[in-house]
């Protein structure tokens, strides 16, 4: 998180409760224009809820009980549903994991993109279609004229995801939230979509919040990374610092469990014993305590705050000084 430019999107102490349990707890991060912030973590750690909260799209069961979200100087968390609808698509957009589930199967893709444009711009249908055609070309869809008149089922998964991206970007939002945008795609198509996102960032200065569980995707595209565990930020750092010198035991073990070039074939991979606690098991202490090799009594009783370990690299662990011990054992 080197020499922070002025943040465009700020998530400050965000807390979300479901049935009395804080499934997202005190989460903070900032994203500047032209930067990519990755949220990573295991299934159920609260990545999607965080992204829905940013867009004002939390499910009924979930309540934001603390913190705020700011877009530049606009307090998004104070907006009414009506005001939010105005901001959504124009200032801030989201793309979801399942492209096929979020497109309307009965409407041509051209009309879906054009409608998204007309929601925020008073233009004729023809003008909106021109804009849509241009957008399809920008996201790398060959033969946009033909594609405009097709239905989602006539397109491949990769193309549907490009359509989703077109809808999300047609009004040139300043912030794009992408929830697992490539998880359902083949690796060669994933590479194309990641390249497209890099182009957006460098050419339009879009700020991106990228949600993923794939450390390879993080290594490819992120500037900064927040590693989430059981609803909290375990560690947050610039991407190079995080991979080179993880300061939280969870991150270190997570990285060690991915097979690398240096492993002997069929050798034992590092694993994390036990399982992620369910929200009703969270308790008072560090949420990683039940699985952590460095655990002490203090960890079980008191929740660690985020400590600075230099250069804006921060880790929520009582025993950062004992990380070398862990790294040695994992190697």
């Amino acid at each position: 998180m080197s020499a922070d430019p002025i943040p465009l999107l700020s998530v400050e102490n965000l807390t979300i409760e479901i049935g009395g349990a804080s499934v997202v707890d005190d989460v903070s991060f900032h994203v500047a224009p032209g930067r990519v912030m990755a949220l990573v973590g295991e299934s159920g750690c609260g990545k999607s809820l965080t992204s829905y909260a940013i867009l004002g799209l939390l499910p009924d069961a979930a309540k934001r009980t603390g913190g705020r979200i700011r877009l530049h100087d606009l307090d998004l968390s104070a907006l009414s549903e009506r005001e939010f609808r105005k901001a959504r698509g124009k200032d801030i957009s989201i793309i979801f994991q399942e492209p096929s589930a979020s497109l309307d199967p009965l409407t041509t893709v051209g009309s879906q993109i054009a409608d998204a444009y007309r929601t925020h711009n008073k233009v004729s249908r023809a003008e909106a279609y021109d804009k849509a055609r241009q957008m399809l070309a920008d996201v790398g869809i060959p033969d946009p004229d033909r594609r405009l008149h097709q239905y989602p089922f006539e397109l491949s998964g990769g193309m549907c995801q490009r359509i989703m991206i077109s809808i999300a970007l047609i009004c040139s939002p300043r912030v794009l939230v992408a929830d697992e945008p490539t998880t359902a795609l083949d690796v060669t198509i994933q590479a194309q979509i990641l390249d497209l996102m890099k182009k957006l960032v460098s050419e339009r200065g879009t700020a991106i919040v990228l949600i993923t569980h794939d450390m390879g995707v993080v290594a490819d595209i992120a500037d900064d990374v927040a590693v989430m565990y059981a609803g909290r930020v375990a560690e947050i750092a610039g991407v190079h610092s995080l991979f080179a010198k993880p300061c939280h035991p969870y991150t270190a073990l997570l990285l060690a469990s991915v097979p690398t070039l240096d492993d002997a074939p069929k050798s034992d991979l590092a694993t994390i014993e036990g399982r992620v606690p369910t929200p009703d098991e969270f308790g008072e202490g560090c949420r990683f305590a039940s699985r952590c090799p460095l655990v002490t009594d203090k960890c079980r009783i008191e929740q660690p705050p985020l400590f600075d370990c230099g250069d804006g690299h921060r880790s929520a662990c009582w025993h950062i000084d004992r990380m070398p011990e862990l790294m040695e054992a994992a190697a």
């Binding site: 994933q190 995707v217 290594a219 490819d220 190079h240």
Partner: peptide, 10 residues
């Protein structure tokens, strides 16, 4: 196309 979990390599 398969991203490596190492920003320097990748």
């Amino acid at each position: 196309a398969v991203p490596q979990a190492d920003p320097v390599v990748q």
